[in-house]
Design a protein around this nucleic acid. Structure first.
Lengths: 146, 146
DNA sequence: GTAATTGCAAAGGATTTGCTCTGGT
DNA sequence: ACCAGAGCAAATCCTTTGCAATTAC
């Protein structure tokens, strides 16, 4: 990685990320959403707003943003990946309502410790974990429907 | 809640389930496997064993078995669902090696309590959760590779 | 004999990729 | 001008479905 010879050029990363109309539109939409939404859903929503953004671009941005940690991503049982802007920067998990999609970010120090302990006791390294709590929220459970 | 299934053999169901060569072959293969394997993988393995079973049939059985609780199913980041015979009948989670697929069933009473507590504190009901610990197992981490 | 079951072929649905054009800087 | 980014079309990949032939019982 080091660049011997040549010059001690400060690594001015020329990763010139450009600001485009599409990126801004998606970012704005995500900012307005509080639930986890699929790429297709977000794409449709953008169109409703009158924005012209390609599906491919949405998928692309979503992935970039998720990789950058700006978005949280979860994969439903149906195989669709849903995204949502990340409120806290740190490590956390979610409590998701299967009915309305509302999601709450939660933390569980004890879970982190448990996972690390279990992994270590079995000789596993480079460990990570996935934790999601699914259920029906207060509001969705109330109705007489059922 | 969890399925009672406490051995009700008095099933008047006319749904006569038939024992076929294919079902037996898959069952046997699963019995020999200790890791989570994808449908495609299992299908290929069956062919290697000289068994003639259609991919469709494998998918079918896998789903039936998973629904019946005979198999555990997990969905990887790649979107592939992998199955493995269920060792314990109770509730449990997994510690999975991303390299070789080896999986260990683990329990975490504290995690269960945490999940229930968090959910309740937010007014959620009918709660369930998913917990997976992913990493690299002892053996896979050893090699001089790299 | 009859319904359960198999499994090919084709459909389906999410996501990615090839590649070219567009627009930001 | 130059290159990151947009996006259409086509390609992938996993999984399901339609349906006729097969087979357990």
């Amino acid at each position: 990685m080091s660049a011997p010879g040549g010059g001690a050029h400060a690594d001015t990363r020329s990763t010139h990320e450009r600001s485009t109309r599409q990126k801004r539109a998606l970012a704005a939409l995500l900012e307005d959403s509080d639930e986890f939404r699929s790429a297709q859903d977000l794409h449709a929503a953008l169109r409703s707003r009158g924005e012209t953004v390609g599906l491919t671009t949405v998928y692309n941005q979503l992935r970039v943003l998720a990789d950058a940690g700006a978005l949280d991503a979860i994969r439903g049982e149906d195989g669709e990946t849903r995204y949502r802007r990340c409120a806290t920067g740190g490590h956390h998990h979610h409590l998701v309502c299967l009915s309305c999609g509302k999601a709450v970010e939660v933390e569980g120090p004890e879970v982190e410790l448990w996972a690390a302990r279990v992994a270590r006791s079995h000789g596993f390294v480079d460990v990570s974990h996935t934790v999601e709590i699914l259920g029906t929220c207060d509001q969705c459970a109330r109705p007489a429907a059922q």
